[in-house]
Write a protein that binds this DNA or RNA. Structure first.
Lengths: 154, 154
DNA sequence: CATGAAAGGTTCACCTTGTCAACTTTTCAG
DNA sequence: CTGAAAAGTTGACAAGGTGAACCTTTCATG
């Protein structure tokens, strides 16, 4: 581990950090836009696509979905309602704890989510500007950033 | 679509790309969350903060704001309404073309925006996991990605 | 065992973001 | 001068998001 001049609360905002933050903001906006478009192309909203993506690893209680997405449980109710009414997910009561409702993706839902993910891999324009080596470097940096901060949850 | 169309720049969805996309999705979610929180701490919504950030470079017509943010002009009307009612921006008619309304940040608005930006520089936890050299590498990669794709506009 | 607190979801009222269509005002080409 | 096009606004509507009140189930404790 390299000793960093900036530990915990950064004492001063260095030049590089500032620029990286600005670049990230732009990239985040771009990514977000494309994600919404890709979802819309499958008649899903961004929030619905996110929930569906979470369910790729299996059924999940409402509350856990809310925690992972950092929003109120009451919000998830509506999103799951709309997904359910379209046959993308089902709600089943947990046998261990009947208060809990497990949300599971249907085959249709899982397929839509996987399709969307694949389309992101192909359509991701920004990434096309980088060579294989650079992508590897980027991957390592992103990994470091994500494991260093609060865990990605899912 | 079972067939894998090898079109565009990417001939096949390689392993690295897929992982980078997933990592980016997580990072984008994290960034987005923190941005919203930082804005909320100043009693701004994310959208309001974005508009205010755009105005850092000077007054801007409604239409241009809409184009930069990739949304309908009618949407901007409401956001600017709320910013205006709180004294963060003003609407002034353009002398050259009286159809155009130039939105400008007030001192209060500009201060709030700058403060928010600074707070991002400090609070950005993920970035703290990287050393100075790594941050430089990351900056260069992000620059490449953004200039290679559709221009960031702002 | 009874009872009450706590947890998981839902409902309701409310606000913001976002879209689309219709409209007003202003500009500009012919 | 007249009509088309552009900039903004308005209104109706849907989704995302919060917070408070509520119901059901679980569980600890007397």
């Amino acid at each position: 581990m390299d000793t960093q001049p900036a530990q915990g609360a950064t004492p001063q905002p260095d030049e590089i950090t500032r620029e990286v933050v600005d670049l990230m903001a732009n990239l985040v906006a771009l990514f977000h836009r494309e994600y919404e478009e890709a979802a819309a192309a499958r008649s899903l909203t961004g929030a619905q696509a996110k929930v569906l993506a979470l369910l790729r690893r299996g059924p999940m209680p409402m509350r856990q979905i809310a925690q992972t997405l950092s929003c109120e449980p009451s919000n998830i109710t509506g999103i799951v309602d709309r997904l359910e009414s379209r046959g993308f997910v089902t709600r089943e009561a947990d046998r261990q704890d009947r208060r809990v409702k497990l949300v599971a993706a249907t085959d249709t839902g899982a397929a839509a989510s996987e399709e969307l993910r694949e389309s992101l891999n192909f359509a991701r324009e920004p990434l096309a500007s980088l060579g294989p080596d650079e992508r590897t470097v980027l991957r390592d940096l992103l990994r470091r950033m994500l494991t260093g901060a609060s865990g990605p949850g899912a």
